[in-house]
C-alpha cells in the first residue's frame, strides 16, 4: 500500500492538466482503480481480526491521503486555468431580455424624477390643441407671424398641432389653480422641412410655478438647482433678455459650456455658453386667462427642449434620427433609465 501511495504521489507530480489528474483519479480510485482493487481483492477470510483491523486502518489512511492529494492536484490545476466541468464562463450570455427605451423617454424619466423631487406634478396636455390655448391665451396676438401656416400645422377643423408645450399653461392653471408647481412634457409640431437639424415633430417639457411672490430670484434658484441635478455638478448660469409674448420679463438662460468650462470650444461656438432654457415670469395676462388673480399671484415658466437635451446628452448629431424608425439608432439606448 505504501508503494501505491508513493506511485500516486509520483504520478500526480508529473500530471500537467486537469484531464491527466482525472485519469490518475480513475486509475487509483475508480471502480477498477489500483486502490479500489486492493480492497476488493483483499483476502479477509485469511486475516486474523487484528490483521483485518490493521488492513482497514491502513487502507482508509491510504485512501484518504490519495483523495486529499488528488483534490490538491485538481485545485492546483484549476488555479492554473483548467476546468473540472465543461462550462466556459467567458462565453457571451444568451437569452438576454433587456430592450431599449427611446432616448426621449430616457430623458423624460430622468427629468420627471428630478422635478417630482422638487415638488412638481407631472401633467400631460394634448397634441391637438385649440388655437386659443396655443396662442391667444399665451398673449400671442392674432397678427403674430407664428400663427401663420409657415410655422404651424393647422387642421381643417380649425384646431392645430401644438407648437409648444406652453399651450397647456392656461389649461393647467384653470384645472389646478394655485399654488401650482407642474411640468408637462409632450410632443410638439412645427411646419418645417425635415433635415439634419430641423424636425417637424419634437419634444418639449414645460415647467410652471405659480404662488404668492414668486420672483426672478426664485426662477434663477430653481433653474440652477435643476441644472445641477441634470448634469450632476454645480453649473454656472446666466440670464439675459429673451422675448416670448407669454412671459414678462422674458429670459434666455444660458449655462456655462460643460465641455470647455467657459473657455470656448466648437460645442459652444466659442462663446463659452450654451443657450438652454427660455424662461420668464408669467405674463399677467396669461395668469388672468388661467383665472388667477395677477395682483395677488405671480409665477415663472420655462421650456426645456427635450429633443435638444437628448441630442446634447447622448451626442446625437442629427435631429431627424429620433423619428427615423431605424432600429440601429434605437438599439443604442438600453433601458437603463429608471423611476
Amino acid at each position: 500500500m505504501k508503494q501505491i501511495q508513493q506511485q500516486l504521489i509520483d504520478d500526480l507530480s508529473k500530471a500537467s492538466s486537469m484531464k491527466e489528474v482525472e485519469e490518475i483519479r480513475v486509475r487509483y480510485l475508480g471502480k477498477k482503480g489500483l486502490l479500489t482493487l486492493q480492497w476488493k481483492n483483499a483476502d479477509f477470510k485469511s486475516m486474523s481480526p487484528d490483521e483485518r483491523k490493521n488492513f482497514g486502518i491502513e487502507f482508509n489512511k491510504t485512501k484518504n491521503l490519495a483523495e486529499a492529494k488528488i483534490r490538491e492536484a485538481m485545485e492546483k490545476q484549476q488555479a492554473a486555468g483548467s476546468r473540472s466541468i465543461d462550462v466556459d464562463a467567458t462565453l457571451p450570455g444568451t437569452d438576454r431580455r433587456l430592450g431599449c427605451l427611446h432616448p426621449i423617454t430616457l430623458i423624460r424619466m430622468e427629468l420627471e424624477e428630478i422635478f417630482h423631487g422638487m415638488g412638481f406634478k407631472v401633467l400631460a396636455g394634448n397634441d391637438v390643441e385649440e388655437e386659443f390655448y396655443n396662442f391667444d391665451a399665451l398673449n400671442i396676438p392674432a397678427d403674430h407671424p407664428a400663427r401663420e401656416t409657415q410655422d404651424t400645422f393647422w387642421l381643417t377643423n380649425g384646431m392645430l398641432l401644438r407648437t409648444h408645450t406652453s399651450a397647456y399653461q392656461v389649461r393647467a392653471m384653470k384645472k389646478f389653480g394655485t399654488p401650482l408647481r407642474a411640468i408637462f412634457p409632450g410632443r410638439c409640431f412645427r411646419y418645417e422641412s425635415v433635415d439634419a437639424s430641423h424636425e417637424n415633430t419634437f419634444y418639449q417639457l414645460e415647467g410652471l410655478m405659480v404662488d404668492i411672490d414668486i420672483s426672478i430670484a426664485n426662477l434663477i434658484g430653481v433653474m440652477k438647482t435643476l441644472l445641477g441635478e441634470i448634469f450632476r455638478k454645480e453649473v454656472t448660469v446666466r440670464l439675459r433678455p429673451g422675448f416670448f409674448p407669454f412671459v414678462e420679463p422674458g429670459f434666455e438662460l444660458d449655462c456655462q459650456c460643460l465641455i470647455c468650462e467657459g473657455r470656448g470650444c466648437p460645442t459652444c461656438k466659442s462663446t463659452g455658453w450654451i443657450e438652454l432654457i427660455p424662461c420668464g415670469l408669467v405674463h399677467p395676462k396669461v395668469l388672468e386667462y388661467g383665472s388667477i388673480d395677477s395682483e395677488k399671484y405671480s409665477g415663472f415658466a420655462f421650456g426645456l427642449g427635450l429633443t435638444r437635451l437628448a441630442m446634447m446628452k447622448f451626442g446625437i448629431p442629427e435631429i431627424r434620427l429620433f423619428n427615423s424608425g431605424d432600429i440601429r439608432f434605437y438599439g443604442q439606448f438600453p433601458a437603463s433609465g429608471s423611476i
Binding site: R96, R97, L98, G99, C100, L101, H102, I104, T105, D127, L161, R187, F189, T201, F322, N323, G325, I327, Y330, G331, A335, S338
Partner: peptide, 16 residues
C-alpha cells in the same frame, strides 16, 4: 419598462 426591461422590446417613435 415591462416591455423594454423584461421582454427585449425597443421603443420607437413614428409620426403623428
Amino acid at each position: 419598462r415591462t416591455l423594454a426591461l423584461g421582454h427585449g422590446f425597443m421603443e420607437v417613435h413614428t409620426y403623428s
